[in-house]
């Protein structure tokens, strides 16, 4: 009854039942898993708690990845933001700092929620936790918004891919930003249409983005791509909430992303053979690490 595979099907369900994307996704989950609403909400709450812990940990502790390549930048940005002189605005800078924090925690072998992947795990917590603080949202509202994110992610999983190895960074961090943008839009009270417009903006912004991890590790440029994913999501949500619509519908953007991923060369899809991984510095870092 609540099954959907595309954004359009999701919107039809939202309008037929007069419910949000988040709520339809909860109903879909109840239907397909045959579990109670309470069980499902609790499971998502566990995700929310891990996201919060990871963000806090990364913002307040001195962390370093196993390779030593990343860590400590989230804390730096957080301190800078607290001084109150940001150019991009306090909220954006906070969201970016949180996204980097979670991503750095991931690189340091801390506990995170794959959202949708480990490589893109900072974007949704960064954007959503920050929006929730601004809005004073209840946990129930934030959990609902996480279902909005997963509903959007489900449509991308069906019609494209969430894997960097298959579609490049656009498929990982791009999808995470799209999911975050939709989640934040519904959290603020935007309509399902606005949420999907926001998701479309986010994906369009990074269409073609390659996956080029230095030395093959989830660190450079992943932590910074997570940073920009969070600011991308907030910007997209603001645009959608202002009433701007995507001239190319969300489902077509997803399809385009998939096709772009298909024609993307192998060197630029997580193989660490192209892009930043293939720069003199990237190659030097790889050599240094393999000598360790």
């Amino acid at each position: 009854m609540y099954e959907f595979k595309t954004g359009n099907e999701l919107l039809n369900l939202c309008s037929a039942y007069n419910k949000s994307i988040g709520e339809i996704t909860i109903l879909y989950e109840m239907e397909t898993s045959e579990k109670s609403r309470e069980d499902i909400l609790l499971k998502m709450k566990a995700n929310l708690e891990v996201m919060r812990e990871a963000a806090l940990y990364g913002l307040t502790r001195d962390i370093r990845s196993v390779s030593g390549l990343t860590g400590g930048d989230a804390k730096k940005l957080w301190k800078y933001t607290e001084a109150g002189h940001t150019l991009s605005g306090t909220h954006t800078a906070m969201a970016v700092a949180k996204a980097m924090a979670v991503s750095e925690v991931n690189a340091s072998m801390g506990r995170i929620v794959a959202a949708p992947t480990a490589g893109s795990c900072g974007i949704i917590p960064g954007a959503l936790l920050t929006a929730a603080e601004i809005l004073n949202s209840t946990d129930d509202d934030v959990i609902n918004a996480l279902f909005t994110a997963s509903g959007v992610g489900i449509t991308i999983a069906y019609n494209a891919t969430l894997s960097g190895a298959e579609g490049g960074c656009q498929a990982e961090c791009g999808s995470a930003a799209a999911m975050a943008a939709a989640a934040v839009t519904e959290l603020v009270g935007g309509s399902p249409e606005q949420a999907l417009n926001a998701a479309a903006f986010s994906l369009k912004a990074v269409m073609g983005l390659v996956c080029d991890p230095v030395a093959g590790l989830v660190e450079i440029p992943c932590v910074k791509r997570n940073a920009f994913g969070a600011s991308n999501a907030l910007t997209a949500a603001d645009m959608a909430l202002a009433g701007i619509t995507s001239r190319i519908p969300f489902d077509e953007v997803v399809e385009a992303m998939y096709r772009v991923g298909k024609v993307m060369p192998y060197e630029l899809k997580e193989t660490a053979k192209g892009g930043l991984a293939d720069t003199p510095t990237g190659k030097r870092i790889k050599e240094e690490l393999s000598g360790k």
Partner: peptide, 16 residues
């Protein structure tokens, strides 16, 4: 797909 395939698993990083 389940919502928890998309948001999850909870895991120790850095790579699923």
């Amino acid at each position: 797909y389940s919502s928890f395939d998309i948001l999850g698993p909870i895991m120790i990083g850095p790579s699923s």
